[in-house]
């Protein structure tokens, strides 16, 4: 299983035939394993890594530190459940340290993100405070380096 996941994590578009060739296993076996991984939601979906800056689209990310007072018996989960449903919320993490939730908010402009924080996030019950940090440049995202790098040359023939 793990070899399939490693391969698909690197390239989600690999076909079962390609996986079978690369991993040295029968295609039928691969197809069944992938179907099971999908059914079990180990593989949640396949998608592209897009450099939106390069695509010319306006995308702004805000990292919002949120301090909250947990609710008796339900901890942080119920407030997290309310926050994560907003489509503006790109990612949401429960954190250790000086704040509780890290909310990554995505918008077209800084104003849009700021409004979301001011109108939706900050006024929620149990939210004690928010601190908004805007992303200025994305150097590396989910393991992909987003800045151009020069290709290294090797000698064309070596022993």
């Amino acid at each position: 299983m793990e070899d399939i996941l490693f391969a698909l994590e690197e390239d989600g578009r690999l076909t079962t035939a390609q996986l079978a060739e690369r991993l040295g296993r029968p295609e039928k076996e691969i197809a069944e394993a992938v179907a099971k991984l999908e059914a079990d939601k180990v593989i949640r979906r396949y998608r592209a890594v897009i450099d939106w800056d390069k695509a010319g689209a306006e995308r702004v990310f805000g990292f919002i530190e949120v301090r909250i007072s947990p609710q008796r018996g339900r901890g942080f989960d119920s407030i997290a459940a309310r926050i994560m449903e907003f489509p503006e919320v790109h990612s949401l993490y429960l954190m250790s340290g000086t704040y509780d939730l890290m909310v990554v908010v995505q918008g077209k402009t800084m104003r849009e993100v700021a409004y979301f924080v001011a109108e939706r996030l900050a006024p929620m019950d149990n939210v004690l405070s928010t601190a908004t940090h805007f992303v200025l440049r994305r150097y590396k995202v989910d393991g992909d380096i987003m800045v151009e790098r020069t290709e290294n040359k090797r000698l064309p023939v070596t022993p």
């Binding site: 000698l155 064309p156 023939v157 070596t158």
Partner: peptide, 19 residues
């Protein structure tokens, strides 16, 4: 000899590299 031939062929695909 191969090295010299390949060197003059920038669009060649090299499967001759030992590193």
């Amino acid at each position: 000899k191969f090295f010299e031939l390949v060197e003059r062929m920038p669009d060649a695909i090299s499967l001759a590299i030992g590193e």
